[in-house]
Design a protein around this nucleic acid. Structure first.
Lengths: 133, 133
DNA sequence: ATATAACCAAGTAAGTTAGTAGGAGTTTAA
DNA sequence: TTAAACTCCTACTAACTTACTTGGTTATAT
């Protein structure tokens, strides 16, 4: 039960963008050097962040990435979901309609996983990017 | 970010043992048929449950498994940890001493993962096996 | 004795992770 | 107008993990 390095690196990178208060974009080269993460790998991460409207990109020389919203308006759950995909602690939790996976009589254990999932989301949503600068 | 099927099946199996109030052990054949889980796979799961002192085994005819403690005395976190190994939402969270993984200045993001981990454990510990029968 | 159980050691197909590699398109500054 | 510094895009891959299966051995109640 682990998150991937994409999320680990992704949040660190987002904090860097949040710290760059000026409107100057931050390039992946900079982040790569600062955090010792492969630049090519960061590209994958930022592709997802951009697809989920968490960052904006500026091409060309002195280009890079900026946050799409203010650090106060971005919470950690959004970042996690952008990089991990929809959160589901079990396969059966991601297919509510799919009644085959769980027993007909309603699997008793599901309530545990449901509550756990709710709690994880709540905890991650509580943290705004602004809390981490 | 998912738990494995070992935990999914394992908790279901533990609930079955909890329901078998009589001192009669429950065999893997029974559980396998009831939950439609491969018996051979259940063996792996029960090997871990036994190694973590959550169940006791009785060999031979009309043998099987019984809970090592009462359902009130077993919580879901114990079962999860037995089957998933020590909980760590990131690799760096499982090696507190290992300072290489995180930046020297103390990674700001770590507090998020620390709080998340704490919350997951708290939620899972809250549920006793007795709550699920 | 035999059936029924736990126990044990390997192997394995499929999927995921954590990257690399190589290039194409954009924009700015000299 | 050319070079450099960027993003962007597709494809590939080694290593690892997951979710099993297979083929046994050992213990015990009847």
């Amino acid at each position: 039960m682990m998150f991937t390095t994409k999320t680990e690196y992704g949040l660190k990178a987002m904090v860097i963008l949040a710290k760059a208060t000026s409107k100057e974009p931050v390039s992946l080269t900079q982040i790569s050097k600062q955090e010792h993460i492969s630049q090519a790998y960061l590209e994958h991460i930022f592709a997802k962040l951009k697809a989920n409207d968490l960052v904006k990109s500026i091409k060309g020389v002195s280009g890079g990435y900026v946050l799409a919203r203010t650090p106060k308006q971005i919470n950690v759950f959004e970042i996690v979901e952008a990089l991990e995909g929809p959160l589901a602690v079990f396969y059966c939790m991601s297919h509510e309609n799919d009644s085959v996976a769980c027993n007909a009589k309603g699997c008793l254990t599901k309530q545990v996983w449901y509550e756990l999932q709710k709690n994880i989301i709540k905890t991650l949503r509580k943290f705004k990017l602004a809390d981490l600068v």
